[in-house]
């Protein structure tokens, strides 16, 4: 049996040898540089942490979308180009091939998150803190829910929780692209989740019924726990949210693998 690691290497090769990767990297780093640049040009009395937080909340969804694009095309494109036929006639079970694709998709999401974080901290440190010393007093006032963490700790917690959201979104789009073999549908639905549903959450919260607490979408945005493990907004705990997400996660993964194994490759 050849090394399973080789399958992941293959998937990574297919992700990283494509020009779209440079477009994605360019967009992420470029947007941070441009927004921070304009900000610093107008008024550089802010702290790097403050600018970083604002940029994370407004820009991070792009990282999620890119991760979704890569994850969903990982399966759907093999079907649409017909390469799936050459991939599945190797001495590997379908489950393992799908697993290699899933792991590679998550690795890519992680890679993009790290790039985003590094670019964010480096650019904002250079523009705001490195030469002017920054204004941490002002920042502290903005971080009302800092919860006794240092700025750096807070940001790391925030990224960790956001990354969990990205993992869930990637998993959902991975499932959709396996079921429907359509890139567009998977990416579209993931966009819908990221933008519309996250913003419509406040409306959902108005419904007093208990079942609302068990909806997937209520728990997709975990950043409300960035300051503390108990949300100041609705009193839910991080543990509860993670448990609900875990149930959905197992369900999605089981369905994805079941369908991929059952499917007749006909076209």
């Amino acid at each position: 049996m050849a090394d399973f690691f080789n399958l992941i290497r293959n998937e990574n090769m297919k992700t990283f040898r494509r020009p779209r990767l440079y477009v994605m990297l360019g967009l992420i780093v470029g947007l941070i540089v441009i927004i921070s640049g304009i900000w610093a040009f107008n008024d550089n009395s802010f702290s790097m942490w403050e600018v970083s937080m604002v940029e994370t909340t407004t820009l991070f969804w792009i990282v999620t979308i890119f991760a979704v694009v890569v994850a969903s095309s990982s399966v759907a494109e093999e079907f649409s180009t017909g390469t799936i036929k050459l991939l599945l006639i190797r001495p590997w079970s379908r489950s393992k091939i799908l697993l290699s694709k899933y792991i590679s998709s998550l690795l890519f999401a992680f890679f993009m998150t790290v790039i985003f974080l590094l670019a964010l901290l480096l650019v904002n440190w250079l523009l705001f803190d490195a030469f002017s010393g920054g204004n941490s007093q002002q920042a502290a006032m903005l971080f009302t829910e800092l919860g006794g963490h240092s700025f750096f700790e807070y940001i790391m917690r925030y990224f960790g929780l956001t990354f969990l959201n990205t993992v869930m979104t990637v998993t959902i789009s991975f499932m959709l692209s396996t079921i429907f073999r359509s890139n567009i549908l998977a990416i579209g639905l993931a966009l819908f989740i990221e933008i519309v549903v996250n913003n419509a959450l406040q409306l959902l919260a108005l419904i007093p019924n208990k079942w609302v607490d068990y909806l997937l979408f209520v728990h997709l945005n975990l950043t409300k726990y960035a300051g503390s493990n108990v949300s100041t907004e609705d009193g839910m705990t991080l543990g509860f949210s993670l448990s609900v997400l875990a149930v959905y996660y197992v369900l999605f993964i089981a369905l994805t693998w079941y369908i991929f194994n059952k499917r007749d490759v006909a076209s």
Partner: peptide, 9 residues
Amino acid sequence: IHFARMIPG
């Protein structure tokens, strides 16, 4: 190389 990696030997 992609397909070679999938087959031992």
